[in-house]
Write a protein that binds this DNA or RNA. Structure first.
Lengths: 160, 160
DNA sequence: CATAATTAATTAACATGGTTAACTATTTTC
DNA sequence: GAAAATAGTTAACCATGTTAATTAATTATG
């Protein structure tokens, strides 16, 4: 009934890869007592320049929950919940914006910064082994392919 | 604090891509009254040859819940729950295996087959537009990259 | 061959991550 | 100054996932 199809195969490959990474990511973050989602927030607050969101939204001021929601493509309500956990763990603090009392600026605590640094070391070692077989050109070509896909999805409304 | 790093960038790209696809996938499946997870099960039962699991596990007989769990990398209990929904929707039926009464063989109902076919049409149109800019060689190179990553993760226990 | 171990599936209780809708508080706009 | 917009929270909910315990059937073994 269903036939071989290269396009479908590309998609299943990406799904499989991201699933596997998520699983490995969970194994890493668990060692540090947080979840992958929580880690992503810490990386956003640490302004990891590799996160795609920052390419189009360079941030000067400390981030707000609204921006995290945008960057992670989830609802603000969900961010509130995730942040509550990180605040309870004393990894993140929330400060009222002086100029606009509706806004709350988020930043990492000292403990939060230290955790990110510790995890960064593990992440880089892991990545080094994972990508050992690829050249810089391989990797650039790969990300280029993805950028083109993302653009196709942005410009065109692919879902009717 | 955190620096630009091509490896990290590759990972964030894949995460972003699969997230975006998941969102678009959800938009498609919702039109047909199911979820993305449920769709995946239907495709597994329809033995979509593009699913990576079938490369290493060719199936002759109708699949069992245990195999779905393996293919999707989730617990058997979770599959039971997902299947219950599909059975309630009359898209899937469960039949006792004649040779081993512990086992239950799963197959698509006529309605299930029809749904898969209808969705297949939408999927292919969507993919055609999404990958319009790529050649066959581009796509093969891309999946090759992913296969190499997956192998690196299989052979080596990257998470200490 | 009877018992122990394994396998397949289910159930129950629970965690997490996500949603929308309604609400509060503050700032902007006109 | 009233209406609209913005930022955040809360509550109620759903989907997806887990583990642990249970049932039933099959396979292995002393």
């Amino acid at each position: 009934m269903l036939k071989k199809n290269l396009n479908a195969s590309v998609i299943f490959h990406v799904i499989k890869l991201s699933e596997t990474w998520k699983r490995n990511g969970d194994a890493i973050t668990q060692q540090f007592g947080i979840t992958t989602q929580q880690w992503l927030i810490l990386l956003l607050l640490a302004k990891d320049p590799n996160i795609l969101y920052f390419k189009e939204n360079p941030q000067e001021k400390p981030m707000m929950a609204k921006e995290l929601a945008e960057a992670m493509n989830v609802s603000r309500a969900n961010i509130t919940n995730l942040l509550n956990v990180l605040i309870r763990k004393k990894l993140v603090v929330q400060l009222e914006d002086i100029h606009d009392k509706r806004r709350k600026r988020l930043s990492l605590t000292e403990a939060g910064k230290k955790l990110v640094e510790k995890m960064e070391f593990v992440r880089q070692e892991y990545n080094k082994r994972l990508f050992a077989k690829f050249s810089k050109a391989d990797k650039l070509q790969f990300t280029q392919f993805i950028d083109t896909c993302l653009q196709a999805m942005r410009h065109d409304n692919l879902v009717k």
